[in-house]
């Protein structure tokens, strides 16, 4: 059981002033899986990722990252990396300085970083490196590119990306999908992403979990019908509202 799962979630809940925003009894993610978290605003996706990174304190329960309880020890940090939002960037650095800073923290040499960056030339689309611009002056999309690539530095075993597709142009979205697929196929890295884009997330993730109001309502391995199922699930309320002829809901509500 120990090495079967990279991430184990046990009786995890988070409340703010008595209001529960997340309650996950059990969620185990095997090593090497590309895992997608889907849900409407306020479903608890970012809360879950923040708990995973020990940025907020769980009300009950715990998350175990490679046998380490994240809220009790910091030993998960060397093999875990994340890009959640712009607060993971240092605005007054240039892209290169930022990459080297992260590399220093993760004990990666400059040459290794340069090699890694070379493989992302396409992804950067000549808008990031050697631009003599501070990160704070880059567009939101380009900032995101920097943050995502920085999270790949140092061969982390667990990569957490919150809404990686948002703000990216279509070309970059397609390139990012390719990159994530490659990472996942290597079976060394566990990738966790959250997204509002059902198409992208079903495309890159082997498994998809749907959160609604902090509770897991769907947990499925991706196949050809997953996208349809998800669209049906998220569209169900609209259909109810426009009062279509009575319809059998049992299929959608089955978890």
């Amino acid at each position: 059981m120990d090495n079967q799962y990279t991430i184990q979630t046990q009786n995890l809940s988070k409340s703010y002033k008595g209001v529960e925003v997340l309650n996950i009894e059990e969620l185990n993610i095997p090593k090497g899986q590309s895992f997608g978290l889907v849900g409407n605003n306020g479903a608890g996706k970012t809360t879950y990722f923040s708990l995973l990174l020990d940025l907020i304190q769980p009300t009950t329960g715990q998350i175990i990252n490679n046998d380490i309880v994240v809220s009790e020890s910091e030993d998960w940090k060397p093999f875990t990396s994340a890009f959640i939002d712009e607060s993971f960037l240092i605005g007054y650095l240039t892209a290169e300085e930022y990459f080297y800073f992260i590399a220093d923290l993760r004990k990666v040499t400059k040459t290794e970083v340069d090699e890694l960056l070379a493989t992302f030339e396409d992804f950067f689309h000549d808008e990031i490196l050697n631009k003599k611009k501070y990160l704070r002056d880059l567009s939101k999309g380009n900032q995101k590119k920097v943050g995502i690539v920085a999270s790949f530095i140092g061969n982390p075993e667990v990569i957490i990306l919150d809404e990686p597709f948002a703000n990216l142009d279509p070309t970059t979205q397609i390139r990012l999908k390719k990159i994530i697929k490659e990472l996942a196929s290597a079976k060394h890295t566990t990738v966790l992403i959250s997204s509002h884009d059902l198409l992208h997330v079903t495309d890159v993730c082997e498994r998809i979990v749907v959160l609604d109001k902090g509770v897991i309502v769907k947990d499925t391995l991706t196949n050809e019908t997953t996208l349809k199922e998800l669209e049906a699930y998220f569209g169900r309320e609209d259909e109810e509202n426009i009062e279509l002829p009575a319809k059998d809901h049992s299929e959608e509500s089955a978890q």
Binding site: L53, L55, E74, K77, D85, S87, I90, I102
Partner: peptide, 12 residues
């Protein structure tokens, strides 16, 4: 403070 989340999730 602007990038404290980064600092706290890195191995510093």
């Amino acid at each position: 403070s602007e990038y404290y989340k980064l600092m706290m999730s890195q191995n510093i």
